[in-house]
């Protein structure tokens, strides 16, 4: 018990790193993912096909492989990034592919008549997206998107394997000092659980709320 309490400050620092990594990745993946998703759904062939291939490739790889690949190979291209940014880049690339899929599903559920109506009053493509498509697609986008946020927090634990002192690695380090693995793992599990469960609940609440909005 004492062990758990004493280690709490150190774990909190790790948690901050986890949250920081997750936060950056979620933001980057949201922006990129929505852009890619729109490009996939509406873009001309020379845009849609590369995006499709990118998305399938990235999602077909284990996240760990992606992280290691980026982490080890990025320096070779001459870019001098810290391990933090290499790991973040890999995780962001991974999640952006998932967010792109979620976007694609949400956006393609909008009937073509909506696009035609938008065109008929003279709206440009981006205006149609912003004022007609996105507001309607939002309800199909949010619940699965929150699931990608949860999966990002889960995936962030893997950055501990390239030396980033996130919550996961902090737990390992405390165990290295105290030799009491079980209480620490339970404590760590609880912290992750609280964060992710809260997010899952939000997602489920949103799903239920939107179910009342008739088509």
């Amino acid at each position: 018990m004492n062990v758990m309490l004493n280690s709490l400050p150190f774990l909190m620092q790790g948690l901050l790193v986890t949250l920081r990594v997750s936060g950056i990745v979620v933001a980057a993946a949201l922006v990129l993912g929505v852009l890619f998703g729109v490009g996939l759904s509406f873009g001309p062939r020379w845009v849609a096909w590369p995006l499709r291939i990118y998305s399938d490739l990235i999602r077909g790889l284990p996240l760990l492989v992606l992280i290691f690949c980026v982490y080890y190979m990025l320096p070779l291209t001459g870019l001098n990034v810290t391990s933090f940014w290499a790991a973040v880049a890999a995780l962001a690339a991974f999640q952006s592919a998932h967010v792109a899929e979620v976007t694609r599903g949400a956006v393609q559920s909008i009937p073509p008549g909506q696009h035609e109506a938008g065109k008929s009053i003279g709206l440009t493509f981006s205006q149609r997206m912003i004022y007609v498509v996105f507001p309607q697609a939002l309800r199909r986008f949010l619940p699965p998107w929150i699931n990608t946020v949860v999966s990002t927090v889960q995936g962030s634990a893997l950055v501990s394997l390239v030396g980033i002192v996130d919550l996961m690695l902090a737990i390992q380090q405390v165990i290295g000092r105290t030799f009491k693995p079980m209480p620490m793992y339970i404590l760590g599990a609880l912290i992750y659980f609280v964060i992710n469960y809260a997010l899952s609940l939000m997602s489920r609440m949103l799903e239920a709320r939107f179910a009342y909005v008739r088509e």
Binding site: A157, P181, M182, Y185, F193, I195, Y197
Partner: peptide, 23 residues
């Protein structure tokens, strides 16, 4: 179900391999 789904797999792997034998 909720516990497993909301905890990273990596942590579970460590927990089972290092944690359980220790207790």
């Amino acid at each position: 179900v909720e516990f497993i789904r909301n905890v990273p797999l990596l942590l579970l792997v460590y927990l089972v391999f290092y944690g359980i034998p220790s207790v």
